Simulated assay, not measured.
Amino acid sequence: MTATRGGAPFQPDAAEGPLSAASGADSVVASRERIASGVVGRERELELTLAAVAAGRDIVLEGPPGTSKTTMLSAITAEWGIPLLFVEGNADLTPAKLVGHHNPARVLREDYSPDNFVPGPLVEAMQQGGFLYIEEFNRAPEDTINTLLTAMADRSIAIPRVGRIKAAPTFRVIASMNPYDNIGTTRLSTSVSDRLNRLSVDYQDADAEEAIVALRSGATGPLGERLISDAVAVTRATRRHPDVRQGSSVRGAIDIVLVAQQLAQLRGVKHADAAAYASSDDYTELVFDAMIVALSGRIHIDEAAETTPERVLREIWEDRFILEPHAAAPG
């Protein structure tokens, strides 16, 4: 299969999938520039991921939720004109759900045949030359993960009563894992790890997260600008709080801004009064209320801590709006 974008073919090597030496270099550079235009603050990670998949390799992206992993993969597959098939790794993901199964009703009528086989996401990705993206990879059962070994090593799998399925050149297995969450997870076997490249994807810096929040929320003006700055600051503080096992991703900051904007309207804040309101005590209370809605379900308290999400968020709010301004005051 040859994936195209705008009529320009993406031409991997037939055997392994890397770009051809002659035209591939220019092609992958052009792809990177187009893809990067839609991804905020992930230049290095995007370049490394693109290099791996362009080389025909499978890869695991290891990092917390909300760190643009899906955004990067969506941008790459959109650029290549191929599908991105999502699978959630959990205890219910059986080999049959991943590979596919024969339609029971048709089997009763017709017996087993290739025609009544219903492809699972693995077979679909192989046939369509897409990326099979397995989130929470290490939550899937070991026998399900092992089903991928042949697909990754040989770029083909044998299915009983169907035959051998060969992968199209752009087929890749992409996995993601959260290093901060080890409850209900399994350790990857050496056989699986040996077939996967790995890239750690951590949280972005404050400037990049502010740019993401501005883009996703559409907030502008004096009120919007302060909301963006404060929302990112308190969200990042959840990742440093000693009682929090895992803090919120940038999605929490986006929702703080969106919720706060609606609260401001509900509380009668007019556009002409926005600048003055952003400097008032009412504004800080508005941010706290938005924090409770947007962050209390996103932070995970350490099991040994005798506190609640609401108390933690109140501490973070006080640090931001009471202690920090007081410490910065003259004298």
Score class of each variant (00 low, 15 high):
Met1Val: 07
Ala3Arg: 13
Arg5Tyr: 12
Gly6Ile: 01
Gly7Thr: 14
Phe10Cys: 12
Gln11Gly: 01
Gln11Lys: 11
Pro12Leu: 04
Ala15Gly: 10
Glu16Pro: 00
Ala22Val: 10
Ser23Ile: 10
Gly24Gln: 11
Ala25Asp: 09
Ala25Gly: 10
Asp26Leu: 06
Val28Ile: 12
Ala30Lys: 13
Glu33Lys: 12
Arg34Gln: 03
Ser37Lys: 14
Gly38Asn: 09
Val39Asn: 08
Val40Gln: 09
Leu46Glu: 05
Leu46Met: 05
Leu46Arg: 07
Ala54Arg: 05
Ala55Lys: 05
Ile59Thr: 13
Val60Ala: 10
Val60Gly: 00
Leu61Ile: 06
Glu62Ile: 14
Pro65Met: 12
Gly66Asn: 06
Thr67Leu: 08
Ser68Met: 07
Ser74Glu: 12
Ala78His: 11
Ala78Ser: 12
Leu84Arg: 13
Val87Gln: 07
Glu88Lys: 14
Glu88Leu: 15
Asn90Val: 05
Ala91Gln: 11
Asp92Pro: 00
Asp92Glu: 04
Leu93Lys: 12
Ala96Glu: 15
Ala96Phe: 08
Ala96His: 10
Ala96Met: 15
Lys97Glu: 14
Leu98Gln: 10
Leu98Ile: 08
His101Phe: 15
Asn103Met: 11
Pro104Val: 05
Pro104Cys: 01
Arg109Asn: 03
Pro114Phe: 02
Pro119Lys: 08
Pro121His: 12
Pro121Trp: 08
Leu122Arg: 09
Glu124Cys: 07
Gly130Ser: 05
Asn138Trp: 09
Asn138Ser: 12
Arg139His: 14
Ala140Asn: 02
Glu142His: 13
Asp143Arg: 06
Thr144Asp: 03
Ile145Trp: 05
Ile145Ser: 00
Ile145Leu: 14
Thr147Trp: 04
Thr147Asp: 01
Leu148Asp: 10
Ala153Met: 03
Ile157Asp: 13
Ala158Glu: 11
Ile159Glu: 06
Ile159Met: 01
Arg161Leu: 04
Val162Pro: 10
Ala167Val: 10
Ala168Cys: 11
Arg172Gln: 11
Val173Thr: 13
Val173Leu: 15
Ser176Trp: 12
Tyr180Pro: 02
Gly184Thr: 10
Thr190Met: 15
Thr190Ala: 14
Ser191Cys: 08
Val192Ala: 08
Val192Trp: 09
Asn197Glu: 11
Arg198Val: 07
Arg198Met: 12
Val201Asp: 02
Tyr203Thr: 00
Tyr203Lys: 00
Ala208Asn: 09
Ala211Trp: 03
Ala211Leu: 03
Leu215Asn: 14
Gly218Val: 15
Gly221Arg: 11
Leu223Asp: 07
Ser229Pro: 00
Ala233Ile: 01
Arg236Phe: 01
Thr238Ala: 03
His241Leu: 04
Gln246His: 00
Gln246Gly: 01
Gly247Cys: 07
Val250Tyr: 01
Gly252Cys: 02
Ala253Tyr: 06
Leu258Phe: 00
Leu258Ile: 06
Ala260Gln: 08
Ala264Trp: 08
Lys270Cys: 02
Ala274Leu: 04
Ala276Ile: 04
Ser280Glu: 03
Val287Ser: 13
Asp289Pro: 02
Ile292Ala: 14
Ile292Gln: 15
Ala294Leu: 05
Leu295Met: 05
Leu295Cys: 04
Leu295Val: 01
Gly297Leu: 14
Ile299Met: 11
Glu303Thr: 15
Thr308Tyr: 09
Pro309Ala: 07
Ile316His: 00
Ile316Asp: 00
Leu323Cys: 06
Pro325Glu: 06
Pro330Cys: 02
Pro330Ile: 03
